[in-house]
Nucleic acid binder design. Structure first.
Length: 201
DNA sequence: TTTACGATCTAT
DNA sequence: TAGATCGTAAAT
């Protein structure tokens, strides 16, 4: 499995292409010099001001500014007053779009992850967008971080790309107040395996 | 300044 | 099915 960093150009593409291509890639967090990582198994695309489920529906604001900037940066925000969410800003620059990382499969640093997710079964360590942020210590301090270099202590690697046949498309989660067609548009990408596991939950 | 509301998670 | 808990954006 490749530990090559995904280049800045990886993110400089339409958000749906990037979201789809992010499945199987590795999120790496450096904590006290130690690699803590996992493979992405679920992601969602949020695209433009016309996407009424996207934060950019409110236009350019202090919060959404990162999404309007150049691709390849992290958009990290707090929701429900307590949960951090990790997103990757995509291209082109000036157009607000990002991919929400919804779940990863823990790889390296499992002891750290277990400690951060105290007492919960392994399956529940990183199977939600807020859970994975808690597991690898991602918070607002990483908002705007460059994901193409290791100096940011948070980056993405090539990992193990997944073929189309292994990916299920569904509507996005947790946007029940958004009007159609945004509520139902299939902009969530999840590996078949993860999809089957979640169906049972 | 006040209000409403979350791209969620957990316990009941 | 409801409660936690607070930043953001729009309304007042």
């Amino acid at each position: 499995m490749s530990t090559t960093l995904l280049p800045k150009t990886f993110y400089d593409r339409p958000v749906l292409d990037v979201a789809r291509d992010l499945i199987g890639r590795r999120v790496v967090r450096l904590l006290d010099g130690q690699r803590v990582s996992g493979l992405i198994v679920e992601a969602e695309a949020y695209r433009g001001e016309e996407d009424l489920a996207c934060h950019a529906r409110a236009g350019l604001t202090p919060r959404t500014a990162v999404m309007y900037g150049p691709p390849g940066h992290a958009y990290v925000y707090l929701t429900y007053g307590m949960h951090w969410m990790l997103n990757c800003v995509t291209g082109p620059e000036g157009f607000p779009a990002a991919v929400l990382i919804r779940a990863i499969l823990p790889q390296e640093g499992q002891a750290v992850i277990a400690a951060n997710r105290a007492g919960r079964p392994q399956r529940e360590w990183c199977n939600g967008p807020a859970k994975l942020c808690q597991a690898v210590h991602i918070d607002g301090r990483l908002n705007g971080a460059g994901l193409w270099h290791s100096a940011s202590q948070l980056w993405l690697e090539e990992g193990q790309p997944v073929v189309e046949a292994q990916i299920t498309h569904t509507p996005r989660i947790g946007i029940h107040n958004a009007p159609e067609p945004w509520r139902s548009i299939p902009w969530r990408f999840v590996t078949n395996e993860e999809f089957n596991l979640k169906e049972k939950e």
